[in-house]
Amino acid sequence: MRLPQFEYFAPVSLEDALKLKDQMRTSAWILAGGTDLVVNLKHRLLAPAALISIRNIRNLTGIDLTPDTLVIRAGTALAQVASHPAVKEHFPILVKAINSIGAMAIQHFRGTIGGNLCLTPRCLFYNQSLFWRKGKGSCHRTGAKDCLALKGSESCQSICSGDTVPVLLALSASVRLVGLGGSRVVPLTEFFSGLGESPYHILPEEILTEIRIPLPWAPISWSYQRLGMRSAVDFPLVNAAAVAVLDKGKVEHLRLVISAVGPAPVILREAEKEIKGAQPEPRMADRAAEIALRAAGGVVVENAIQSRDYRVKMAGVMARRAVKEALRL
């Protein structure tokens, strides 16, 4: 399969890259690992005038440990993140999520953490070849004003498919977005728009440079659950992450997230509220499942390889397992 035509820039500094992005805005895409972007280009899903490669920009890779935060630069390869001693020590949940992405030889050495977080949302009717799509008609993302998965929907319902998304959200991470005018740090809770056609609150002139994870103030217990058709080379059908702090027999802190259900991950705040402050007990996992089931029922549409009903049901199962493991039930 041939690639469409585009200009290629490989600036040597972040400033040069930002200047290009400032001029070209949405017509230029950032090329990091390319393991998702290049496929989408081959399928003619995107038609950027230019790609801005970050391979020459030194300060977009690497991991720093500050007294209270782990800073992962967005262009760091997934394999590098998963094998870093500080990540292994503080956030084994992130290692587990990374190891479940695609396959080692595809994503792990080229794919980056920033790329996985900002994966283009996926849909059964969108992630297809040009030939296939021609027979189906257009949607929000291909120039029309309708959704092929959910007739009459006002926005694209594609699925947020990153494996690291629920995990980073459960770890209360934030991201640094840099533009020519300055930089800002946005918590991940405010990063997702919920619109499949423009899923992230990144301005056209901005570049994602860092993922910042606060170091836990107490030992955390965690769980990452993922359901896929196969164990490798597949995007999650549903995934869930739970991060808890258990202290003196009580649940001091809990963050519970399900993802790969709709355009944005879903934080199960109702479940968190019920569980926080109480002693861990088995019925909590069932309650989390009920709440997840209800939440997923509101966002899942018929747009993945498995049916809507199955995915909704499995969202409950993933949430139950996540709570069970994180609360050591």
Partner: peptide, 18 residues
Amino acid sequence: LMNGAPVRACLTLALEAE
């Protein structure tokens, strides 16, 4: 193998291998 790591040649732009 690109600098020792296995990569997909079909997903890697030639210019990225500079």
